[in-house]
Design a protein around this nucleic acid. Sequence first.
DNA 1: TAGATTGTTAATCGATTAACAATC
DNA 2: TAGATTGTTAATCGATTAACAATC
Lengths: 231, 231
Amino acid sequence: MRSTKIADAVVRRLVIYLRALEQEPADDDATISSYELAERAGVNPALVRKDLAWFGEFGTRGVGYKLAFLRSQLRRILNLEHEVPAALVGAGSLGVALTRYSVGRRAADSAFNVRIVALFDNDPGKIGLSIDGVPVYSVRELAPRVRELGVDLGILCTPATAAQEVALTLAAAGVKGILNFAPVALRLPPGVRLVSADLSLEMQYVAYLLERERVASLRETRTAREPAGGS
Amino acid sequence: MRSTKIADAVVRRLVIYLRALEQEPADDDATISSYELAERAGVNPALVRKDLAWFGEFGTRGVGYKLAFLRSQLRRILNLEHEVPAALVGAGSLGVALTRYSVGRRAADSAFNVRIVALFDNDPGKIGLSIDGVPVYSVRELAPRVRELGVDLGILCTPATAAQEVALTLAAAGVKGILNFAPVALRLPPGVRLVSADLSLEMQYVAYLLERERVASLRETRTAREPAGGS
DNA sequence: TAGATTGTTAATCGATTAACAATC
DNA sequence: TAGATTGTTAATCGATTAACAATC
């Protein structure tokens, strides 16, 4: 087998292309060129063509891409036609917000396919409740429920200290991927995909950007120490 | 001026290095080598050294990096010694969750420096409330309040449709950066830094990963059409 | 001194962009 | 046919890794 691993960045852009296409009017005979699509996605047109070419030939030379066709192909490639049953662990305010968010997005956008089917928490005051129709179970039931419900994806909203243990429990119970919101680096068994959405990392990163100028001037000072510090 | 732009990825790793150091015991004479730090951060040791070297010489050859010193330098570089006053727009469940999260992280972790000082929403039922001590104002007051409170960072938790307009209002009111949680590509005036934390993109990306094998087999089919299909 | 480990340069790897033949 | 635009190869750019002299 030719091992043509498709880069993460390519797939993320595919999601962005699809979103741009979904904002278009549903005139199904319309076409869109790589130039127009690139414009909307904020990337280079050659990159659009190359990204799409990884998955097949979706366009017509001299014409462009048929809007409706490209849209359906992207949905297929991204597996958005199939629902992904997910379990969310940690029904704190972030966990609850993500649950509401995903229920809302699913109602509003047919291309949003993650369905949270169960929440898990330690707090006896939460167990037995239901959030937007999703039941809250005890984390002690995690493994059997995950198996029973055929969960493919685990979403981690626990404190950082609990995340690694819960992740391994989820992996052992058979999830194929984990989406981690806890601010910690996880180690997972091979075969389980990990995506981290580290909110506090983003916040700390943006804090750095706000003072980039200050850091630049510090670097200047350092550089100036060098003899006859050239251009 | 030597235009040595420091890559985004470098700064994000700096946050990860700092976290790893903060898990260490506070034995202040202890040192750590690039090998140990790389191990904890899950990267190559040469990369640790190169990342740090962008900002100065923090280590001692033959010895390593002094834990306490490196920690304080990383805090300084990342601007974590100064509080970043932030305004969050969109007090839905995600906005409320992020507010609670940031209040909690600030209490627990001295290196977490984003302080949400005001929430904004359209819903009259929310205006006037306070969430974990943070007041909710009308979005109509956005610009004057942002100026009055000296807000540096805007956090967008609005629906996708409102995000662009709010972003421009925030920029005009003088924020230096925007952290965008709305699933939409924003255009900002130059000088305003943008970081996107696109939760639904992450969810859709993970959905793809779960079926990567299926896609791989599709590609195989395509490849097999070529004459004498290679290795 | 010998061993260890940094800071930095050179080599490698991968991703993006430019160019263009194929073709509608 | 002439103009447009894809799919793909080659060139460029940037980021990571390897190697090693400097030095504690």
